[in-house]
Design a protein around this nucleic acid. Sequence first.
DNA 1: ATGTCC
Length: 544
Amino acid sequence: MATRVTVANNAKQSQKAPLVLPAAAITDPAAAGSMQSLVFKTAQSKLKLKKPTRVFVKQTGQELINEKDWKDNIRSDAVLLVSTGEEYVGVKKEIIIHEDINPSCPVEILASNAPIESLSVTQLTTTTRTLPGIIHAVGQPDLHPGTKFPIGAVFASYKWIHPPLIGGDIGCGMAWFQLSLSRSQVDGDKGKKVAEKLRGLEGPWRTQELRELWLQDKDGSCSAGEQWDSSLGTIGAGNHFAEIQVVEESASDLDNGLREGDVVLLVHSGSRGYGGSVLKKYAVESQTSLEEGTTEAAEYLKEHDKACRWAKANRDLIALRFLACLEPGNEVWQLGASDVDHVDSASIERCKSALQARRVVDIWHNNVERVSWPPSPPSAMGLDKAVDSLSLNGSKYPQEHVYVHRKGAAPTCDPESHQPLTLLPLPGSRGTPTLILQPSFSAATSWGLKNALSLAHGAGRSMSRAKALSSLSQKYKGQNILQPRGGDEGTWVICDEKDLVFEEAPDAYKDVQAVGQDLVDAGVATIVGWCRARVSYKVRNENH
DNA sequence: ATGTCC
């Protein structure tokens, strides 16, 4: 199999170029067609290094001299530093083989219909079997490669916390809110009128004083300071969005659920720059894993939890700003608009409770959660909690706790009550449906062990951003893909960023039906309905 | 995904 490596200039390591070493490449550096000759050739042509003479492995600083060095050190994702004679630049770090690493840890991939790229499987397996404490890993059907760690992945880890597995967008997730609009107000061409109403949603929301009041919750304040709070109430970039959807079908008969014909707002956003600043603080060079009980672990968890609360407050505020545009007659939402001056703390509280009444569900899909392991049957199945842990897990499997790391994976239970969620969204992309999922619990999945108490969080990319941009901008050249093409099907998309139009096109994603079917086939969820977006808001440039 | 980063 071919090996992807990165070739970098040892003296100036920001200069780098990718290189695919074919399976036929020869490890003996003296031979013709050797790996070394390919690396040197890349260094000459891409890095403009005239006389490359030495090669080091980044991080360890190991120099590759003889055939054995090349054989032992060339692996996928290795960074090779090419030198023109000078010594290795950087601190040599040993690769720690920790006793808590489980080289044979089970890796479950819940996909048969949805396509899975081999790179994402390699990332999932390598991560699972090289980081300490991981006892179970799951690739959801939306699994796809990340920079280093996969997305659509869940890692259950004993005694160890791994901030990079959650990534920078700590607390990212989705929330559904009921709107008072009727479907006839958003169907067909009416969608365009509704889209026109969505303005004033891009800049900072009001003053820092009011943002701090908004960030006050039952656990205190989750303000991150003005630098980060100024982004509160904004959607952000990448795959984030807010959509006005119609519930097309729903088997839900619950009062607090979704009923056919309901018009809802789905908000997908996270902690903006704040979560990234938390990751940066804890994922410093050698420190990729934090051991339970250390002050670093405790501090990370504290800041992580705060970023999760911030992200949830962000989704709430995004919803409020949309409500101010969509239901202008309702005075309680005027706080969302930036042009109404006087507000007091009582009106904020009124607004928050009105918003809570509209919130159907809010989940985090980038976070770490401490849970009992192995999972017990939900107590809704008629079993008392105390009985669960004693008779079912007591002697045979001592009840432990693990840290469930989710990177682009939705939870199956409410993090507070630990009870199963009754519904959660599985969004496709733009015009494609958002499925309404209900998590399933049964002995067949060991009550959620199989899926690590998690589900897919979306369709998942099937094309990298770069690939989507190049191939889809060609495919749709001269076409406007931001409005419905004929008939009543399709979605009005607000996306004033050129590249994002193609990077986020439905073609760049897997088929959400296949992803949903994989969850059903795995016995971890049922599809209880679906929605279709009428308006999808990504980003607006108010200057034009 | 990001007031991005060498």
